[in-house]
């Protein structure tokens, strides 16, 4: 009896608290900083440097949102989450948004009760093999031993792919990417499979990257993107359009270098004007300042700049834009218009 009362009280407390926190934007503003969930460390996407300052491709999204809300890209509290804790942290309100290379799937969007606000990186599962193996297609991998992270969607994709092609494989279960590198280099497996971005980053750290090749097959769709909780659409809009602002900025040629100059006075391009708040009232429509997008773009640049700085071809990660080029360049990165 007492227990029932206790649980009842807890539930009510939870509901009251849930209702009270419906407006995430107000909570964030009252707190003075954004709680952003990131990974505990993934090369190029999110990692603390020697001084504990977070950097990376996903981190830049958090910083842009913080800049849009507060005008200050450092007003973020980065909450490191693991694969197990990330969804609970978001659902329970410990973090306001999650930017942690999370694949947008049906069940995560619907059953888990989250809203993916966009895709900041189109990834897919690939294969890496030593050149000496003499394999040029994943379909030649019959009977190969494969290093695979357990409990991930990559494991399921792999099984599907081999079954569909009617070939067999021997799985070597591993826990982390670092462990996989060691196993693969030690020859414990012929093939290492994970997201293609991860493979490229891994290969870049090898002593002789040229001795290993990425096979052409990409066997899954892994659209990675930031997400928020269901139920607060206003907050979802802010995160979604902050990200869209970064994409549109690249499309319109607004960079961190020229954004201040372009925002100083209306230009002769009306879309730039609307984006940068020198024309129209877009900021007010989502409850932010007129210069919200200026702040977001100044934080770490437009989408292209963020890409080049963290994971682009001039970094050790060395990823080509590929699918992640703007739609005007043959990629999939596309933002609805600012109007």
């Amino acid at each position: 009896m007492k227990k029932t009362v206790l649980f009842g009280a807890l539930t009510v407390a939870g509901l009251v608290a849930g209702a009270a926190s419906a407006a995430t934007l107000d909570d964030v503003k009252a707190r003075g900083k954004l709680n952003c969930g990131v990974t505990t460390g993934l090369a190029g996407f999110a990692a603390p440097d020697a001084n504990g300052v977070w950097e990376g491709f996903d981190v830049a999204v958090c910083r842009a949102v913080a800049a849009a809300v507060f005008g200050d890209p450092t007003a973020v509290e980065f909450v490191p989450t693991t694969g197990e804790t990330r969804f609970t942290a978001l659902a329970s309100g410990e973090i306001d948004m999650l930017a942690r290379n999370t694949t947008w799937t049906f069940s995560r969007d619907t059953d888990l009760g989250f809203d993916f606000v966009g895709v900041n990186y189109y990834d897919g599962q690939g294969f890496m093999v030593p050149k000496s193996l003499g394999v040029s297609s994943a379909k030649d991998l019959d009977g190969a031993t494969v290093c695979i992270q357990t409990g991930t969607t990559t494991e399921l994709n792999l099984a599907d792919f081999f079954r569909a092609n009617n070939i067999s494989y021997q799985p070597v279960p591993i826990q982390t990417n670092a462990e996989a590198q060691q196993q693969y280099l030690a020859g414990a497996c012929d093939v290492y499979t994970t997201d293609a971005s991860g493979l490229a980053a891994t290969r870049a750290t090898f002593e002789a990257p040229g001795d290993h090749v990425l096979l052409p097959e990409i066997i899954s769709k892994e659209p990675l993107g930031p997400l928020v909780r269901h139920g607060d659409n206003d907050w979802g809009d802010i995160v979604r359009w902050t990200f869209n602002a970064l994409v549109t900025a690249e499309e319109l040629g607004v960079t961190s270098a020229n954004v201040a100059e372009l925002a100083a006075a209306p230009t002769n391009n009306p879309e730039v004007n609307r984006l940068l708040g020198t024309e129209g009232e877009l900021g007010a429509m989502i409850g932010l300042d007129a210069t919200w997008a200026v702040a977001a773009i100044s934080a770490s640049g437009n989408y292209g700049e963020i890409f080049e700085k963290n994971i682009g071809e001039n970094t050790p990660i060395g990823l080509a834009r590929g699918l992640n080029a703007l739609w005007t360049d043959g990629g999939l990165i596309y933002s609805p218009p600012f109007r």
């Binding site: 460390g41 490191p80 197990e84 670092a178 980053a201 750290t205 990660i317």
Partner: peptide, 26 residues
């Protein structure tokens, strides 16, 4: 505690490896 996202020494090895300078060290 590394499994709940706290940066104990083991968790830090992951974070250190995630910086582009030290990716691949083990």
């Amino acid at each position: 505690v590394v499994f709940i996202g706290l940066f104990d020494p083991i968790g830090l090895t992951n974070a250190i490896r995630a910086s582009t300078n030290w990716n691949g060290i083990y």
